[in-house]
Amino acid sequence: EEWMVEKALMVRTGLGARQIESYRQGAWIEGVHFKRVSPSGESTLRGTTWYNYPEINKFIR
């Protein structure tokens, strides 16, 4: 699984929702560690946020 939603990321990493938000707003790079995608497939600020687990795992190492 490369891309996953927040709940799956929480299960895989043990991070809480606030921790994920903090990383997203600070250290993680949009387009690398996470992306927002609307149902139409376009990038957007209001779409579902998807997280790239392999890239996040590399960051944590």
Results as ranks from 00 to 15, higher is better:
1 E>F: 08
1 E>R: 07
1 E>W: 09
1 E>Q: 09
2 E>G: 08
2 E>C: 12
2 E>P: 06
2 E>Q: 08
2 E>R: 06
2 E>T: 10
3 W>T: 00
3 W>S: 01
3 W>F: 02
4 M>H: 02
4 M>L: 11
5 V>P: 13
5 V>D: 15
5 V>L: 15
6 E>M: 14
6 E>K: 13
6 E>I: 14
6 E>Y: 06
6 E>H: 06
6 E>L: 15
7 K>C: 13
7 K>S: 15
7 K>E: 15
7 K>T: 13
7 K>Q: 12
8 A>P: 04
8 A>I: 11
8 A>F: 07
8 A>H: 11
9 L>D: 01
9 L>S: 01
10 M>S: 07
10 M>V: 06
10 M>H: 04
10 M>N: 03
10 M>G: 04
10 M>E: 05
11 V>R: 12
11 V>Q: 14
11 V>W: 10
12 R>C: 10
12 R>W: 07
12 R>E: 05
12 R>F: 07
12 R>P: 02
12 R>D: 02
12 R>Y: 08
12 R>M: 11
12 R>V: 10
13 T>C: 05
13 T>Q: 02
13 T>R: 00
13 T>Y: 02
14 G>E: 04
14 G>P: 02
14 G>A: 04
14 G>W: 03
15 L>S: 01
16 G>P: 07
16 G>E: 12
16 G>N: 15
16 G>C: 14
17 A>D: 05
17 A>Y: 08
17 A>S: 11
17 A>R: 13
17 A>E: 08
17 A>M: 09
18 R>C: 13
18 R>T: 11
18 R>I: 10
19 Q>R: 05
19 Q>N: 04
19 Q>F: 04
19 Q>V: 06
19 Q>S: 06
20 I>T: 01
20 I>P: 01
21 E>G: 05
21 E>T: 06
21 E>V: 06
22 S>C: 15
22 S>G: 09
22 S>I: 14
23 Y>L: 10
23 Y>S: 03
23 Y>M: 08
24 R>W: 03
24 R>E: 09
24 R>M: 15
24 R>K: 10
24 R>I: 13
24 R>S: 08
24 R>V: 15
25 Q>F: 07
25 Q>D: 12
25 Q>C: 09
26 G>A: 09
26 G>Y: 13
27 A>I: 12
27 A>M: 09
27 A>T: 08
27 A>N: 07
27 A>R: 07
28 W>K: 00
28 W>H: 00
28 W>I: 00
29 I>T: 10
29 I>D: 04
29 I>Q: 08
29 I>S: 05
30 E>H: 05
30 E>P: 06
30 E>I: 05
31 G>I: 03
31 G>M: 04
31 G>P: 02
31 G>W: 05
32 V>W: 05
32 V>N: 03
32 V>Y: 05
32 V>R: 06
33 H>F: 03
33 H>P: 00
33 H>Y: 02
33 H>W: 02
34 F>I: 03
34 F>Y: 13
34 F>E: 01
34 F>L: 02
34 F>T: 02
35 K>L: 09
35 K>T: 08
35 K>F: 06
35 K>N: 04
35 K>A: 06
36 R>W: 15
36 R>L: 15
37 V>Q: 08
37 V>N: 07
37 V>F: 08
37 V>W: 07
37 V>H: 07
38 S>E: 12
38 S>P: 14
38 S>T: 11
38 S>F: 14
38 S>I: 13
39 P>S: 12
39 P>L: 13
39 P>R: 09
39 P>W: 09
39 P>C: 11
40 S>T: 13
40 S>V: 12
41 G>T: 09
41 G>F: 07
41 G>I: 08
41 G>K: 08
41 G>L: 07
42 E>I: 07
42 E>M: 08
42 E>P: 08
42 E>H: 08
43 S>K: 08
43 S>Q: 10
43 S>V: 12
43 S>N: 11
43 S>Y: 04
44 T>Y: 10
44 T>A: 12
46 R>S: 15
46 R>V: 14
46 R>D: 15
47 G>L: 09
47 G>C: 10
47 G>S: 12
48 T>C: 07
48 T>Q: 12
48 T>E: 15
48 T>P: 06
48 T>R: 07
49 T>G: 03
49 T>E: 06
50 W>R: 04
50 W>P: 00
50 W>S: 04
51 Y>S: 01
51 Y>R: 00
51 Y>C: 02
51 Y>T: 00
51 Y>F: 05
52 N>Y: 06
52 N>H: 06
53 Y>W: 12
53 Y>K: 01
53 Y>V: 06
53 Y>E: 04
53 Y>N: 02
53 Y>M: 05
54 P>F: 12
54 P>Y: 13
54 P>M: 09
54 P>S: 11
54 P>Q: 10
55 E>C: 05
55 E>N: 06
56 I>Y: 01
56 I>M: 00
56 I>R: 00
56 I>T: 01
56 I>A: 01
56 I>V: 08
56 I>F: 02
56 I>L: 02
56 I>E: 01
56 I>G: 00
57 N>D: 15
57 N>Q: 15
58 K>R: 09
58 K>Y: 06
60 I>L: 15
60 I>S: 03
60 I>D: 03
61 R>G: 10
61 R>V: 13
61 R>H: 13
61 R>N: 14
